[in-house]
Design a binder for these strands. Structure first.
Lengths: 130, 130
DNA sequence: CCTTGACCTTCCCGTGGCTGGAACCCTTAT
DNA sequence: ATAAGGGTTCCAGCCACGGGAAGGTCAAGG
């Protein structure tokens, strides 16, 4: 398969696929005309990476996950540990975002939103906690 | 005030303060020795930006907010609109993150996490929905 | 045979919001 | 004289790509 076909099949930009090759994540063979030639196993790997990325794993994590996936002697504990760490990160991000959201929602609800200049949002940003 | 003093006072890296100058967000005067000299109003602006950033506003948004802040004839509706749009973005991010979290948490809970290689996390990443 | 158009290639720059580091200047104290 | 602790500039790098230029390749049609 050429890169365009893979791109369609996986709904993944060709640019992204080339990028993954450039960082040594999924390396296809080359045809005589120098076109990238993706075997089924390559396409499979790219799909794997795509799903892992959709779950928010970093590309580095994807590299590790791919290595674990290809290792028959892996311990599932290693995978779980990686995923658990990522989960913790997501939780932290969620907490931070939720806190932001609360503060911001409160400020927005306090703002009249009319033609007058008085605005508690700006006042809060200007004054800090005062 | 020199940059170091401002940095300490606002708990904001000097690098960041210089960056904000480089993009024309907060521009201090210069002393004779070419050191940046921050007046109270500059420090105030930087604090404003810091708090807006902590609420997740982009630097571009900060620029707009600063402009609104400095405009006596502003309408609070404009500020509210900006903040509301940002709030919607946060909500979208929260929803996406929460969905990720659910999927990932489920997978993690399904994984034995022992020395055996069998791992539903990898299976899911490999197989897609199958 | 030539062209058209769709594909592919490499390469370099830009994104956002900084951060790290090198190489150098200024001030003060010892 | 020198050392410490400010400050300055500029360049590079981070992450995970995306845009776009300049050019090679392939299949179909006139």
């Amino acid at each position: 398969m050429n890169i365009g076909e893979v791109s369609k099949k996986l709904d993944m930009p060709a640019k992204t696929i080339r990028y993954y090759e450039s960082i040594g994540l999924v390396t296809p063979q080359r045809s005589q005309n120098d076109y990238r030639h993706y075997r089924l196993s390559d396409v499979h790997k790219l799909g794997f990476v795509g799903r892992a990325r959709a779950l928010g794993f970093s590309v580095q994590d994807c590299r590790l996950l791919l290595a674990l996936y290809g290792d028959d002697t892996r311990a599932s504990a290693d995978v779980r540990k990686l995923a658990g760490a990522h989960l913790a990160q997501i939780d932290a991000k969620l907490a931070a975002l939720a806190a932001m959201r609360e503060t911001l929602a409160h400020l927005v609800s306090c703002c009249a939103g009319d033609t007058r200049p008085d605005c508690p949002i700006l006042e809060d940003l200007a004054g800090g906690q005062g």
